[in-house]
Each structure stands twice: as structure tokens, then as C-alpha cells.
Amino acid sequence: MSNEDILNPKQMPREPEKATLEGKNKFIGFWFFLGGETVLFASLFGTFLALRNSTAGGPGTEELFGLELVFIMTMLLLTSSLTSVYAMYHMKNNDFGKMQVWLGVTVALGLAFLGGELYEFNHYIHEYEFTFRSSALGSSFYTLVGFHGGHVLFGLLWIVTLMVRNAKRGLNLYNAPKFYIASLYWHFIDVVWVFIFTVVYLMGKVG
């Protein structure tokens, strides 16, 4: 396949993300990377679970957490997962415009989520003096949730870069795999969040 065919395909194939060898490699490689990320987050979850009662005299999880904000953030992130599914749906139908729109919605929801998280951290720090340094619980909480937040931020930058870079030229076999794995990444962030709201917040509230 010549470079010209990749950049300006006459016809989009059924699975544009896997039409080239490079695309297939990216697809498989990224999934493998997510396998590794699973262990990374498991280690962070494990650390949090081991330290969840180590308050060092400071506030504990039951006292700290409120469910309302977490519920709203959860809904935002879950919905963003669906909107990125819509984006991929339009990618497969070779409808670049609609894909960009849905990616835009995804980014907006992700931003709102991040805003919520920052507000929440700020709240804990100022209202409860619960910080990264105040107790082992604090260290592990901010590390786990912060790692996830960092992933969200990176995902947003990544998707926006892709959107801007390709805005003028539309879909081709070179950028389709990039869009596809970005959306895989976004779903993975959502998977991690499902466990965060369950293990950190809900279990923290139960005590």
C-alpha cells in the first residue's frame, strides 16, 4: 500500500483502524498496554485498600466523602464513554463531521469531570485539612484518584490534538487507528473510574 493510498484512500474499508499493518500494530499494542495499566491501577488500588483506615488522627473516609458530587461526576464520565462510542460509530460510517462533534462532546464532559475533581480536592484540603501529606490515607487517596485524573487530563489533550490536527483533512487510514485507540483509552479511564467510585467512595462511605 503506498503512502498516497493511506493518506487519501479511495474507499474507506470496513475497519479503517485495522486496515494497515501499522494500524493493526497500534490496535494490538494499545490493548496490551491497557493490560499493563490494569496492573498499574491494581497496585494503586491495593495501596489504597491497605491504607484506607490509616487516618493518623485526621478525617476518615466516612466523614470526608459526599455522594452527590461523586454521583454527578460518575454520570458525566459514563456519558462521555457513550459519546465516544458514538464518535467511533461515525468513524466506521466514514462521517468525519459527526465524529468530530461527538468527540467534542466527549471532551466537554471530560472537562466537566475534571472540574468536579478539582473542586472536590480543594474542598477536602480547605474544609478538612485532608492533604497528600496529612495521613497515609491522604497520600494513597490523592495518588489513586490523582493518577486517574492525570489519565483523564492526558486523554483530553490527546483527543483535542487529534481533532485539531486532522480537522482539515478528514479521516484516512493513517489517522483512523489513532482516533480508535484514543477512544479505547477513554473507555479504559471509565473502567477505572467505575472501580474508583465503588471501592474508594461507596466502600469508604460504608466504612
Partner: peptide, 18 residues
Amino acid sequence: MFDRMFGSVFFDVAAGGN
């Protein structure tokens, strides 16, 4: 790294670390 450079207390038993 966080413990050594940014003051977290994962391994500081005085603050509940393990």
C-alpha cells in the same frame, strides 16, 4: 518518589504508613 520528594507518608509509620 512521593515520600522522598513531595512529603507523602506511604512508608512513614508515624502517619499511618506501612
